[in-house]
Simulated scan of single mutants.
Amino acid sequence: MDIDFARKKDCVVFNDVSLLVRTYGSENAKRIKRRMVELQAAPFLKDVPATPPPRRHKLSNRKDEYAVDVKHPFRLVFMPDPTSVRDADGTYDLSKVTGIVILRVEDYHGN
């Protein structure tokens, strides 16, 4: 899958291990790298497991946002590439999504 970033700063951090560790801590950095490898290896978003450890899931209170688990309570939040195919009801067809945009890493339960 193609991966882009909503913020240039995140692209820099995610592609520099020392910055990733400094920003998110060593355990989160290790898991973020693992999730990124899993996301890149998946041909389509539907191929990212909805079961742990990645546990791809749609965020019910945020339009078009999905997440995968990092280290509890943190999640890697992303959205399908805006040019991805949508179904008739306006939702993304995960079997046709080949690109995502990383939005942030956060504990969205604390918000």
Rank of each mutant, 00 (worst) to 15 (best):
50 A>Q: 11
84 S>E: 08
19 L>N: 08
7 R>N: 13
11 C>I: 11
39 L>S: 00
46 K>P: 02
13 V>C: 11
101 V>Q: 02
25 G>T: 00
64 D>Q: 07
85 V>H: 08
33 K>F: 03
23 T>N: 14
32 I>L: 07
95 S>R: 03
51 T>E: 07
41 A>S: 15
71 K>W: 02
21 V>G: 05
20 L>K: 10
83 T>Q: 13
49 P>K: 05
93 D>C: 07
68 V>P: 00
103 L>S: 03
25 G>C: 00
104 R>P: 05
24 Y>Q: 04
37 V>F: 03
1 M>F: 02
81 D>I: 01
50 A>H: 06
103 L>N: 07
108 Y>I: 09
83 T>G: 14
88 A>W: 03
17 V>E: 14
12 V>Y: 14
66 Y>K: 04
70 V>G: 00
4 D>R: 10
53 P>G: 12
96 K>M: 09
100 I>N: 02
14 F>N: 04
6 A>D: 08
91 T>M: 14
101 V>H: 00
29 A>L: 02
47 D>M: 12
94 L>Q: 04
91 T>S: 15
108 Y>F: 13
105 V>F: 06
8 K>N: 12
36 M>I: 01
59 L>T: 09
15 N>E: 10
59 L>S: 08
6 A>W: 02
6 A>K: 15
101 V>A: 01
87 D>H: 14
8 K>C: 06
1 M>E: 02
93 D>G: 09
40 Q>R: 08
48 V>H: 06
49 P>Y: 01
63 K>P: 07
62 R>H: 11
45 L>H: 04
94 L>E: 09
70 V>L: 06
73 P>F: 10
97 V>N: 05
33 K>T: 12
4 D>K: 12
46 K>I: 13
78 F>V: 13
107 D>N: 15
60 S>R: 13
20 L>Q: 03
87 D>P: 01
105 V>C: 12
95 S>M: 09
9 K>Q: 15
10 D>C: 08
111 N>R: 15
6 A>C: 12
54 P>H: 03
92 Y>H: 07
64 D>Y: 03
76 L>Y: 05
11 C>Q: 13
27 E>C: 05
95 S>Y: 02
34 R>S: 10
59 L>H: 03
4 D>H: 12
92 Y>V: 04
71 K>N: 03
109 H>S: 08
50 A>F: 06
33 K>W: 03
13 V>I: 12
